[in-house]
């Protein structure tokens, strides 16, 4: 059945603006609905506003009162599980971290992530991200490394930031290499450059992932436009602290004749 013809009498919604705790004129939400191969589009809902509400609250209200089959993924409602990623007014954001009062007046659009295949409504298939993750060799200390590790603070300082990643994949979604150019097969994407950087900079790791990140990871496709950094809800400096340092390490190997000579003479990596 086409979305435009759906009967709207589902649910038993309180009249917008009249419910308990309601706080002013109803908010207008344009929420994407649909599954692949069938008609898809935005459906308008009017939701009673509540002080301090976030977009996920509105989606839950719609699910409870109006449209019980509206699909969305969520888990913690605390910006920590990385499940509720969507595009709010066209920008990739966490629904549970986007307050209504931070958005400009007017209708609010909620759509699924563009860079991942649609499953239903606001839910996308992010398995590509997990496939990329599996291709990256895991942390590998030397076989004779005494355990537990003794590591100086200054040697770990850089990688603390990378540990904050909640795998929301908003950075993957916003990255134009995946989003606009569909280079999924040639490009790891920002989240996985963060992972590679955290492993490459680890003082006890012994595996070399630089060649892989340059070739199959497609590091060169990144043109430092920093959208990944702009959307990261954990404020990880993805470009400055992960991608650029990786690019510099690649340049050491492939673009620096001075280093090549010193490697030859001194036999260093």
């Amino acid at each position: 059945m086409a979305i435009a013809e759906r009967p709207a009498q589902r649910g038993t919604a309180p009249q917008p603006g009249a419910g308990s705790g309601s706080d002013g004129a109803p908010l207008e939400f344009h929420v994407f609905k649909g599954i692949p191969g069938e008609e898809q589009g935005e459906v308008t809902y009017r939701v009673p506003p509540v002080t301090g509400m976030v977009v996920l609250d509105a989606i839950h209200w719609i699910q409870k009162h109006v449209d019980t089959d509206l699909a969305c993924r969520w888990n913690c409602k605390a910006a920590k599980c990385g499940s509720c990623s969507a595009e709010i007014n066209g920008m990739p954001r966490l629904m549970c971290k986007t307050r209504i009062d931070d958005l400009p007046d007017g209708p609010i659009t909620v759509r699924p992530m563009t860079a991942f295949p649609l499953i239903k409504d606001l839910v996308t298939d992010v398995s590509h991200a997990y496939e990329v993750n599996r291709r990256i060799p895991q942390f590998t200390p030397a076989a004779d490394e005494p355990s537990p590790f003794v590591i100086q603070e200054m040697d770990l300082e850089r990688i603390y930031e990378f540990r904050k990643c909640i795998e929301c994949f908003l950075c993957q979604d916003v990255c134009h290499v995946l989003r606009s150019h569909d280079l999924q097969e040639q490009f790891y994407g920002p989240r996985f450059f963060v992972r590679v950087a955290s492993l490459e900079m680890h003082p006890k790791d012994t595996v070399d992932r630089l060649e892989a990140v340059r070739t199959e990871g497609g590091l060169g496709y990144c043109n430092i436009t920093k959208c990944c950094t702009e959307v990261c809800p954990e404020h990880i400096h993805i470009t400055d602290n992960a991608i650029i340092p990786l690019k510099e390490r690649v340049a050491d190997r492939h673009w620096d004749p001075l280093r090549a000579v010193s490697r030859l003479l001194l036999g260093k990596r």
């Binding site: 709207a8 344009h30 008609e39 898809q40 589009g41 459906v43 308008t44």
Partner: peptide
């Protein structure tokens, strides 16, 4: 009851499929 199909509301033409 709070739900409205996009495009079929205010000012939308009859031929509007209601889908953006």
């Amino acid at each position: 009851r709070g739900a409205e199909v996009a495009g079929s509301g205010k000012g939308a033409s009859a031929g509007d499929a209601g889908v953006t």
